[in-house]
């Protein structure tokens, strides 16, 4: 079920996705952007611990597993970014007093890891059949020392860049759901990056649609 999308004007690396590749979780997806690869698994709506129970909505827990070693501060902040994005798009009030667990396993990190997490998370949530008000995708932009904007940078490009930004964008109005920035940049550059990301997101949403259509092609 692997699909690959080539790059044209807004240059994204080639990306691919596979849904429901794991048998045990309720929803799973792997997402590949260039050499960056992430595997996501979703469990839920499942039974929740009494201490974590919320009476009017589902409890969402996001866990990021690094390739080696234990999760540290960096993973914690990525978890929070992904969780807030998911909470914005999930209709968690339809499954009160239950738990949703999203596990993101890094398979390989070659830059734009946070955007790859977001894309993998969205595909996995969709595979699990959880109710969502809209889809979301992640786009990473790097501003080079000479002011050039690179979308979906590799690890080497990230290292050379002056500023690095990741945006989560929703599918209905193409608005920013979450942003995570690093480095220094002007207001104008920020707006430029948002505009570029919104343009890139259209390509990713079209890819989502194509890969879901492919998945359901046998039951049409």
């Amino acid at each position: 079920m692997m699909e690959v999308c080539g790059s044209s004007n807004v240059s994204l690396r080639e990306f691919g996705c596979e849904q429901s590749l794991l048998s045990r979780p309720d929803g799973s997806a792997s997402f590949i952007q260039g050499d960056t690869s992430v595997l996501a698994g979703v469990y839920g709506p499942a039974e929740v611990k009494v201490s974590k129970e919320i009476y009017d909505r589902a409890t969402l827990e996001v866990l990021v597993q690094p390739k080696v070693g234990l999760p540290s501060v960096r993973e914690r902040s990525q978890e929070q970014c992904v969780r807030e994005t998911c909470e914005a798009s999930l209709l968690s009030s339809l499954h009160p007093r239950s738990s949703l667990t999203l596990i993101l396993q890094v398979l390989h990190d070659d830059g734009s890891l946070l955007s790859c997490f977001l894309n993998a998370a969205c595909m996995a949530l969709m595979d699990a059949g959880l109710p969502m008000s809209c889809l979301f995708c992640g786009v990473t932009c790097a501003i080079h020392a000479d002011g050039q904007i690179i979308t979906d940078p590799t690890a080497a490009q990230e290292k050379e860049s002056r500023a690095l930004m990741t945006f989560a964008i929703d599918s209905t109005e193409h608005k920013v759901l979450m942003s995570s920035t690093k480095g220094s940049f002007s207001v104008h550059e920020l707006q430029q990056c948002i505009a570029v990301s919104q343009k890139a997101s259209e390509k990713i949403f079209q890819f989502y649609r194509d890969s879901v259509r492919r998945r359901y092609s046998k039951t049409l």
Binding site: A128, G129, M132, S133, V212, L220
Partner: peptide, 27 residues
């Protein structure tokens, strides 16, 4: 009318509509 799940739109006479999805968890 908003769609909240991914899947195939199905219909039944006279005016029932639903989204048929492949999920594993039961509600």
């Amino acid at each position: 009318l908003l769609v909240s799940k991914s899947g195939v739109l199905r219909t039944k006479q006279p005016n029932m509509f639903w989204v048929d999805s492949q999920q594993k968890r039961y509600v």
